[in-house]
Computed example of a mutant assay.
Amino acid sequence: MSEPPDVPATVAAQPPMERLTKRQRHGADCLYCAVTLRPGDVVDLGGREAEDGTVWSPRAHPRCVKGARDDERAG
């Protein structure tokens, strides 16, 4: 899994957990756009624990992470 140097591994602006699909929560689909991820085009956002104690492993396309970061800065 790669991470472009200008894209942080953690981004505050994440979709609400209740809106995510099972595949998004398990890192098979992009956290932001819900498209299936391919090896080599992935940013691992690290393991997380939801409020209910559920452990999840979000991953995303580098361009989606950068877009979320840009949106957060603009907002």
Rank of each mutant, 00 (worst) to 15 (best):
Met1Lys: 09
Glu72Pro: 00
Cys33Asn: 04
Arg73Phe: 06
Trp56Val: 04
Arg73Ser: 12
Leu45Ala: 00
Glu3Trp: 04
Ala74Asp: 12
Leu20Ile: 08
Arg25Leu: 13
Gly47Cys: 03
Glu18Asn: 13
Gln14Lys: 14
Ala60Pro: 06
Gln24Met: 11
Gln14Phe: 02
Gly75Lys: 15
Asp70Glu: 15
Ala50Tyr: 03
Leu37Ala: 08
Gly67Asp: 12
Gly40Val: 04
Ala9Lys: 07
Val55Trp: 13
Gln14Thr: 12
Thr21Met: 07
Glu49Ile: 02
Pro4Asn: 08
Asp6Tyr: 12
His61Phe: 00
Asp70Arg: 10
Pro16Tyr: 04
Arg25Ser: 15
Gln14Pro: 02
Arg73Lys: 15
Ala12Gly: 08
Val35Thr: 11
Gln24Glu: 12
Asp71Phe: 14
Cys30Thr: 03
Ala28Leu: 15
Asp6Trp: 14
Arg23Lys: 13
Glu3His: 02
Arg23Pro: 04
Val7Thr: 11
Ala60Leu: 04
Pro58Ser: 08
Arg19His: 14
Val7Lys: 07
Gly47Ala: 08
Asp41Val: 02
Cys33His: 03
Asp29Gln: 05
Arg38Cys: 02
Thr10Tyr: 08
Pro15Gly: 05
Ser57Asp: 15
Leu20Ser: 08
Ala34Thr: 07
Cys30Lys: 03
Val35Asn: 13
Ala9Leu: 15
Pro5Asp: 13
Glu51Ala: 09
Val42Gly: 01
Arg69Asp: 05
Leu45Lys: 00
Arg38Trp: 04
Arg69Gln: 03
Ala13Gln: 06
Thr36Tyr: 02
Pro5Arg: 12
Trp56Asn: 15
Gly27Arg: 04
Pro62Gly: 05
Val55His: 13
Val43Ser: 00
Glu3Thr: 06
His61Arg: 03
Arg73Ala: 15
Thr54Gln: 10
Ala12Lys: 14
Asp70Leu: 07
Ala50Asp: 04
Arg73Thr: 06
Thr10Gly: 08
Met17Ala: 09
Gln24Trp: 07
Gly46Asp: 05
Cys33Val: 06
Tyr32Gln: 01
Ala68Leu: 04
Glu49Trp: 00
Arg23Met: 10
Thr21Ser: 15
Val65Thr: 07
Val43Met: 00
Arg25Gly: 14
Ala68Gln: 08
Trp56Phe: 11
Arg25Gln: 14
Arg59Phe: 00
Met1Thr: 10
Gln14Cys: 07
Thr10Pro: 01
Pro62Ser: 11
Pro8Tyr: 12
Val65Phe: 03
Arg48Ala: 07
Glu72Gly: 04
Gln24Ile: 05
Pro15Asn: 12
Gln24Ala: 14
Arg48Leu: 02
Arg69Gly: 01
Trp56Cys: 10
Pro4Tyr: 06
Gly53Arg: 02
Tyr32Gly: 02
Pro39Lys: 15
Glu51Leu: 10
Val7Pro: 01
